[in-house]
Amino acid sequence: MNARPVVKICGITTAEGLGAAVAAGADMIGLVFFPPSPRHQAPDAAAALAARAPAPSAGGPLRVGLFVDPTDDEIAAVLAALPLHILQLHGSEPPERLAALRTRFGLPLMKAIGIAVPADLDAVDAYAPVADHLLLDAKPPPDATRPGGNAGSFDWSLPATRPIPRPWLLAGGLTPDNVAEALRISGAPGVDVSSGVERSRGVKDPALVQRFVEAAILG
């Protein structure tokens, strides 16, 4: 029997959205620390928001901080305000940068890899030795201002064509209506959603969050 998929709700910005993710049973919540994103949070605001959720030891979700090509000082400023469980790197950080961040901060790392064509999966081999988790996301369009959260998707059958030696999440264009099919086609052990459960840009819809988690878990 297959294990229950891991579900991450990314880009939480409101107490309502956080409460919906917790109530639905999301395994991870993503807090975005990238100013160009409509889901960006200042460290103090993110800390106040995250404090509303139970700790993982009490059944609450893991807190994932999303950064894009951050400096050490930027990460340190967030960690000073808010303990995180995972650092998500969503930029062009090379494997050597991940290794340095692990040494500096001692936290598990999740690396996002943009996928559009089969050759993009070659990056899995480069990052697997230094990342604890991988996130396979749709590669952004050339004119995009953000590396993720653009509501685009990629061929879900691609990840099934090769072994992925780390826990990984599928992302990009997922919604309550297609997540079960995406899991079936890709074979992903988990999913990550942001814009697909929003009622307006950056604001999560509790009903969509609930539907998404149920569809991912129940199929």
Score class of each variant (00 low, 15 high):
L82G: 15
P83C: 15
P83G: 14
L84K: 01
L89E: 10
L89K: 12
L89P: 15
G91M: 11
G91L: 11
G91T: 13
P94W: 02
E96Q: 09
E96N: 02
R97S: 14
R97A: 14
A99C: 13
L101C: 10
L101W: 00
L101S: 07
T103I: 14
R104H: 03
G106T: 10
G106D: 06
L107F: 03
L107Q: 06
L107D: 09
L109K: 04
L109Q: 06
L109T: 09
K111W: 02
I113Y: 09
G114H: 05
G114Q: 06
A116C: 13
V117W: 11
V117N: 15
P118F: 04
A119K: 14
A123W: 06
V124A: 06
V124F: 07
D125K: 04
D125I: 02
D125W: 03
D125H: 04
D125V: 05
A126Y: 09
A128E: 11
A128Y: 05
P129H: 10
P129V: 09
V130T: 08
V130S: 06
A131W: 01
D132F: 09
H133I: 10
H133G: 00
H133V: 13
H133C: 03
L135D: 06
L135R: 05
L135A: 02
L136G: 04
L136Y: 02
D137H: 05
D137S: 07
